[in-house]
Computed example of a mutant assay.
Amino acid sequence: MLDVVINIVYFMLSVALLFGFIRLIKGPSLPDRVVSLELIASIVVGYVGVHAIDTGVPSLLDVAIVIALTAFLTAVGFARFLERGGPKSE
């Protein structure tokens, strides 16, 4: 029963990742792309967490925490970049 649930979760995460990549490619603006990158990072954290549960390797949760913290710092950096005016077309 647990295998069925884990496979369903993997499928749902894959669909969400596909939608995140579509938003990343289509845009239409830079903030939309930044939000989609944050979404993709969160989905990857979900993948790692589900894989840790599936394989029984608890040290993978440390990897998920590092990915989440890196994604958070990246989002803060992008937000500061956009707040200061974004890319300059000079």
Rank of each mutant, 00 (worst) to 15 (best):
F19G: 02
P58H: 06
I43L: 15
P31E: 08
A16F: 13
F21S: 05
I65Q: 03
S42Y: 03
M1D: 11
L30K: 09
M12Y: 04
L61G: 03
V63I: 15
M1K: 07
D32K: 02
I43F: 04
A16E: 09
G27F: 02
S29W: 01
S14P: 01
V35P: 01
L37N: 05
I25M: 07
A16W: 11
R80S: 05
L2A: 08
A79M: 06
P31D: 06
G85R: 07
L39K: 08
L60E: 06
S59R: 08
A41C: 07
K88S: 12
R80G: 05
R23G: 11
H51G: 02
Y47F: 15
V76Q: 00
L61I: 14
L37D: 02
Y47K: 06
A16L: 15
L73C: 09
S89I: 14
L61S: 11
V76D: 01
L73N: 00
I67Q: 12
K26F: 09
K26E: 10
V76A: 05
N7K: 11
L2Q: 09
V44G: 01
L69A: 15
V57T: 13
I6T: 10
I8R: 12
V4N: 12
D3V: 07
S36R: 00
A75K: 12
D62E: 13
P87G: 03
G86D: 10
V35R: 03
L37H: 06
G27Y: 03
E83I: 05
T70V: 14
I6C: 01
L37P: 01
I43K: 05
E90H: 02
T74W: 09
V57H: 11
L30W: 02
F11V: 14
E90F: 08
E90C: 00
A16T: 14
L30G: 02
H51S: 08
D62H: 11
G86P: 11
Y10N: 00
I43Y: 06
R23V: 14
K88F: 14
H51P: 00
A79W: 07
D32R: 01
P58I: 11
R23Q: 07
V15S: 03
F19T: 09
F19V: 13
T74F: 14
V48M: 13
V5E: 05
Y10R: 02
I6M: 08
L13H: 04
D32F: 02
I65Y: 09
G85I: 12
P28M: 06
G77L: 12
K88G: 06
L73K: 00
E38I: 00
K88E: 12
I40R: 10
I43T: 07
V5C: 03
P31K: 05
L69E: 04
R23K: 10
L61D: 01
V35Y: 07
I65N: 00
V48C: 11
G20M: 10
G77E: 09
G46I: 10
M12T: 14
I43D: 04
V48R: 12
V50Y: 04
G86Y: 11
P58R: 06
P58K: 03
G46W: 04
Y10A: 02
S89H: 09
V5G: 00
P28K: 08
G20F: 11
L24K: 06
